[in-house]
Design a protein around this nucleic acid. Structure first.
Lengths: 199, 199
DNA sequence: CATTGACGTCAACAGGTGTTGGCCTACACT
DNA sequence: AGTGTAGGCCAACACCTGTTGACGTCAATG
């Protein structure tokens, strides 16, 4: 009857989109294949046929490209601001990273995925602005901790004061932190307080 | 047979202890009543009798007292350092907070619990050191975001660079951030009046 | 002694889960 | 035409989950 035959690759994409949204909103465990299939107007078995298993579906849905800007082309003093702006924008437009973060909270495999993203993308992008190459991982991790902390508060815990902040306000407050973690000469000293916050 | 009759309140505590550990390690969904009961050497139904439901068991296991120090008795400049030290020590000694954090990642009720802990304990403790009372929630939330971000990186995601840091090193790097969020005159300036670089 | 009540076990229910295999149908190709 | 194949649905399997109720059994209490 109503067969509504569809293109195949098209439904595959539709499943992926719905899956991303569900994973991002409810986390891995509470997301069911049946729910995804239902919302994608398809039979659950089709999800299996396309992706093999729930595990593989998640992996496919959580493939992430942070699309980090080339920091060598950014004035050194603007690195913090640039990164915070980038991440806030990314979180607001795509729930994929949130999905991964949620799952990482209770699944070691997803945590491993986050670690590899961190190492391959964040640490790499951030390297050129750190004073001491040997401290790149540490500085990158500190910056990541603050950025993820904001994401946690804003999208997962929904802490009202953070949710109420505009993207610009977040940038204003957090950028100096990232700037210090990445570019300060040492833990305790700021790099050049007089120049922070130009604009 | 081997009845090994026990004191009651004692087994209740045992269940609670095992539950805390499981919730902290695996999160809420992946923790099963059966597993808890098994490790506590008891029948699953006893867990229900003592706590009513898995939900209530979690609530009982996640009752948290942050035991925050009285910041009015701490030199203003040491507030950041004091708080970071306190939290790092707390995370290392008790997994309860981690259990709650993990669950909050996928369960709105646990997130709500975190919000109330935040409002009742963090915001309250932090209030006296903020310059502008109206900004207390925002400043407290920013501080919380950084502290939770570190917890996330160190205990949940297990980012090597953060795990490798000693508690003292974490304090060294993070304390200035907390200090600025709580006590700085504005987002962009450090608290030291001499360094306020106005244009 | 008898009875009560707390501590504990056992077995089962009811529902939801990922996953599988069989079957149907429309389209493209020979 | 006939045929293969990809897209799709249905029903079921096997398993695990929280939860429940009936049933023991020991100790203390009247």
């Amino acid at each position: 009857m109503t067969d509504a035959r569809r293109s195949g690759a098209e439904t595959r994409d539709r499943i992926l989109a719905v899956a991303r949204e569900h994973f991002a909103r409810q986390g891995y465990d509470r997301t069911t294949i049946r729910a995804i299939a239902s919302e994608a107007q398809i039979d659950p078995s089709m999800v299996m046929r396309y992706f093999g298993s729930k595990e593989e579906l998640f992996t496919a849905a959580a493939a992430i490209d942070l699309a980090l800007p080339d920091l060598t082309e950014v004035p050194v003093g603007d690195v913090g601001r640039t990164l915070v702006t980038h991440f806030v924008r990314m979180w607001d437009s795509d729930g994929t990273l949130m999905a991964l973060l949620r799952r990482a909270a209770s699944d070691p495999a997803a945590a491993e995925q986050m670690r590899s993203i961190f190492a391959a993308q964040v640490a790499r992008a951030v390297a050129p602005v750190c004073p001491d190459p040997s401290q790149v991982p540490r500085r990158a991790a500190l910056a990541a901790s603050q950025l993820l902390g904001i994401a946690l508060g804003r999208y997962v815990l929904v802490l009202p004061p953070i949710v109420d902040m505009t993207p610009d306000e977040i940038v204003e407050w957090v950028a100096p932190t990232i700037q210090r973690y990445l570019a300060a000469e040492s833990a305790q000293t700021d790099q050049d307080p007089d120049r922070v916050g130009s604009s």
